[in-house]
Design a protein around this nucleic acid. Sequence first.
DNA 1: GTACATTTGTTCGTATGTATA
DNA 2: GTATACATACGAACAAATGTA
Lengths: 74, 74
Amino acid sequence: MAIVDGPVPKFSQLADILRARITSGELPTGTPIPSEYDLEQEYGLARGTIRKAIGVLREEKLIVTVHGKGSYVA
Amino acid sequence: MAIVDGPVPKFSQLADILRARITSGELPTGTPIPSEYDLEQEYGLARGTIRKAIGVLREEKLIVTVHGKGSYVA
DNA sequence: GTACATTTGTTCGTATGTATA
DNA sequence: GTATACATACGAACAAATGTA
């Protein structure tokens, strides 16, 4: 998957990608999702955009985030 | 030299200052750069900004950094 | 060998300014 | 005007390496 420039916001596209990686089982419960920095590098997005996508998944209770540590699949 | 609030990013200004201190000979090869904490105090910047400036000089091969020790003029 | 202080490494939290659609 | 996106900057917490007492 790749983030494309188009009508769908990038943060939304990233949320979709991460959600798929979680629900598919690629990222099982308890495992850490890539750090914000790693996601920046991997998808070529700004940190604010990454955080917005993560916020979506946190809102959906799919992940939990711990300050200074990272985000984990719920 | 002082860091000013303006169009030039602070991390870039600090990188310029440190580069000048190195190339002028004030900080000869092998000598340690002030610690991140000391640079914070001296220039009134956040640690992240300090680290970004140091990263620039490391990229330029002007300094090398050792975990737990410090950064040294290359 | 342990405990502690110092220093760099990593990560998330928040805010501001700029530009664009 | 609103939402999106990027860059910058400060703050905070946690972690690892180093050296010393």
